[in-house]
Amino acid sequence: MHPTESAIHDYVDGASDPFERNAIDEHLVSCAVCRQLVEDLRELKRAVGTLEMREPPVRAWGRIERAIKMDERDRPRAAFLAGTSLYWLAAAAAVILATVVGLRVLPGRSAPNGEEAAEMSASARQAAEAIESELRLAESHYENAIKGLEAAAKSDQDALDPRTAATLQKNLEVIDQAISESRAAMRAQPASEPAQQSLIENFKTKIALLQDTVALINEMRKGNEAGAARIVSGLKNKG
């Protein structure tokens, strides 16, 4: 009976125990098939020992040097952005979020639905108009914050690998679509609380995604892979 293939490999590797080794030695005397296998595996082992190192193409260093120079050029800019404008923008966005969330939870200020609006008194209508005006103001604050974050994210997007950038872009498009739909709902029913809530939620989502994008860019620039991986994982979880 032939030894198992695995036992032959162990034999060639010198990993068989003495008993097994003796048994295979005896078998090889009378079995040409197994003898050939052992010879071939030894020949392969010998050939592996002759493998030489491969020289990279001459252009390889040029590619690396260019990548290093781009990295060097972008790093100070990223550090500056991280220390100043991007963090300021993120903080500004957070302040705006807090303001608008605060505005929405003020007692007695929730907007009436369609039926209630029809029965509104003049004073109630005035209150609803005041909310709308505050919402418009909040919307413009959101849009300014988004504009700043978008510019920062776009200008440094080359720090991201193309797949991540494409995924982020796709997510932003989905959110933009949702914002457009919320706006359309607001136009149709300006006093509708779900429409207002949906618009604000979509703005918050967009700002959060842009903040994550900017943070991811900063981590990539710093070469902090663990930090970048944490943000990407957070993005995936949100997705």
Binding site: M53, R54, I64, G223
Partner: peptide
């Protein structure tokens, strides 16, 4: 470079991927 390029080519299974890996390795 030669040692790392050799490792990268053999692990990736192609010189093209090996060269890309070499660039990433040295940048890192």
């Amino acid at each position: 470079a030669a040692r790392l390029y050799t490792l990268a080519c053999r692990m990736a299974g192609s010189p093209e991927d090996g060269e890309d890996l070499l660039q990433e390795i040295f940048l890192q």
